[in-house]
Amino acid sequence: MLAAKLPCKETIKVVEEPIPVPKKGEVLIRMKASALCRSDLHRYHGVALFDEDDKEANITPGHEPCGIVEELGEGVTKVKKGDRVAIYLGLGCGTCPDCLRGDIMLCPEFRCIGFAVNGAHADYMTIPEENCLLLPEGMDFITGALATDVGGTLYTACKKIELNGTKTVVIIGCGPMGSGGILMAKGFGARVIAVDTDEERLQTALDLGADYIINPCSTDGPARVRELTQGRGADAAIVTAGGDIPLNSALNSIRTKGQVALIAESNRAVIDPSNQFVRTLAELKGCWYFNRGDWEEISDFIVNHEIDMKKISSHTFSIAEAEKAFPLFDSGKTQKVVFVWE
């Protein structure tokens, strides 16, 4: 089979290797779609994101996959050959309180496919059967792949900040995650104000359904948000761009008792706690991936609300073209890049 590897910094190689054999409790997945993620680029640039020993160049990246169950390992009972599945990216201990309630990403022993073990940028992969997420009827493979990291994370964020048809939300950062946020927020019925410094991404935001766009390079973002909300500020904000400026923009754009969902990765930020929290009663909520038990709710929401996740996929490649796909995605000039198998 073909698999993409990261033998050294900013280098991708596609190699031939044996099809893996599922161990006890595992299944073999024949890949149908596998999306590139910004996290993949941390390995591409030689930076580990999950505190893993990332020196093993033989680990196949990829943690947003979708495919078909091809073979069952010993003891597998929850899925069957031929099932169409997306893959939950987290591997946990299985016994801690976080794992037991489905929040695998919070497990003290959390490991991520594509970082700690072989991931999905390959023709086949093996995975524990409990990581298989059955696709509903009507969901294609590309949508299934995008419904995990992007769809699941942004659906969870929209729920955490209690979006509905009466709410206005500011989405700061209109890359793939922010674009997914626009789709999800509109599915919840909210009015969306999209903020980005890139005019092409702002045009994409409009195409995805954003009601208003703001470029903070030419406009005072929080002031414009207040103009659009009769001086009150937005009910909520979703931050998908990293750094001080986007986070502060979100906190300064929301009304009193507003809520901010923070998705963007960042090591530190300087804020004004007294004026942005204490005297506003604002809430800042961390949002990282989704509870495994919520998959049916998430996938049904996407299907029933006819949310076209494929609108945020700007390019598709075969796995044999991985050497082209990684640098293109790294350029920042794309939305989601997805490997597909016919």
Rank of each mutant, 00 (worst) to 15 (best):
T126V: 15
G144M: 13
K55T: 15
G67V: 03
V21S: 14
A57R: 11
M139G: 05
A120W: 04
A116I: 09
G75C: 05
P273V: 06
C37S: 08
K81E: 11
I172N: 01
G102Q: 07
K186R: 14
E342F: 02
P20C: 12
Q335N: 12
R101L: 02
Y212F: 15
N304D: 10
V192Y: 01
D53G: 03
P216K: 05
R255I: 06
E26N: 08
G258R: 01
E17V: 11
G231E: 11
G90K: 00
G175C: 12
L146G: 01
K333N: 13
L154D: 01
G189E: 07
T95N: 10
T11E: 15
I127V: 15
V260L: 07
N275F: 10
I172D: 00
E130K: 12
L328G: 02
S274Q: 13
N58L: 05
P222D: 09
V21H: 13
A234I: 08
G209L: 07
G82T: 06
W288I: 09
D140F: 13
S34R: 10
M309K: 01
A57W: 13
C99N: 07
T148G: 03
D40I: 03
I12C: 11
L284G: 09
P216D: 07
M309E: 02
F317S: 03
L134W: 02
V14F: 11
G178F: 04
V117R: 02
L134S: 06
V278Y: 14
E297Y: 04
R101M: 10
G151E: 04
G152R: 01
E137Y: 11
A157F: 01
L28D: 00
V303T: 06
P7F: 07
V239E: 01
T60Y: 03
D207L: 09
I213G: 00
G231V: 09
V340Q: 07
F329W: 04
R84T: 07
L100Y: 09
